[in-house]
Computed example of a mutant assay.
Amino acid sequence: MQEILAKYIPQAAVEPTFELIKTNNVYLKIVNERVTRHGDYRKTPNGQHQITVNANLNKYRFLITLIHEIAHLVAFSKFGRNIKPHGKEWKHSFTMLMLPYIRPEIFPSQLLPLLAIHFKNPRASSDTDAKLSLALKQYDAPNDKNYIFEIPPGGLFRLYNGKIFKRGNKRVKRYECLEVSTGRMYLFNPNAEVEFLHS
């Protein structure tokens, strides 16, 4: 298991992460990319704690995602199954589990202050933290995608599901985008990755 982990997370994180997996009796599955999520946790009918994480994540995002999912397991075990999935119990568990990892042996120095801010009140997805998400993206393999905020106003873009949108104005934090085929308006996070078609 440690050799497998070493392919996906920073070397200095392998030993403590392996211990976390063992201690919490986690069955870890590394799966092909799912566009709607980076990972998930579920308790199987036979009582096994199964965590899946996308194989295509860079090593820093993979580590954050894995700890995020272990935090669900820990929060449910400690506080019961009736808590909110991303409520205060999960936030506390996630922060406590992540603290030992927020150090320069594991994360690049430019990520450390962003992680420190993020873990004061972690969100359901690191993708909704625009600064952290952008910083983590630098470590991804190159792709041909653009962020919503990079699309010019009125520009057309395509989602992974083939739907085409026209970028509108920015509301407080998100962008209004018109689905071309239906005329319906949707809100997008500025750092959502899309395929730019043309202005």
Rank of each mutant, 00 (worst) to 15 (best):
H68D: 12
H68Q: 06
E69C: 03
I70C: 02
A71H: 02
L73T: 04
K78L: 10
K78G: 08
F79T: 05
G80C: 04
N82W: 03
H86M: 02
K88A: 05
E89L: 05
K91D: 09
L97F: 01
L97D: 06
L99Y: 13
P100H: 07
P100G: 02
P100A: 08
Y101P: 05
P104F: 10
P104Q: 13
P108K: 08
Q110P: 03
L114Y: 03
L114I: 03
L115V: 05
I117D: 14
I117V: 08
H118Y: 15
H118I: 00
N121K: 08
R123N: 08
T128I: 10
K131I: 04
L132D: 08
L134Q: 15
A135Y: 02
A135M: 09
L136C: 09
L136R: 06
Y139I: 11
D140F: 10
D140S: 06
A141V: 11
A141I: 04
A141Y: 13
A141N: 10
N143R: 06
K145H: 07
N146M: 12
Y147R: 13
I148L: 07
E150N: 10
P153Y: 10
G154S: 01
G155W: 12
N161V: 01
F165Q: 07
K166V: 14
R167T: 03
G168D: 12
N169S: 14
K170V: 11
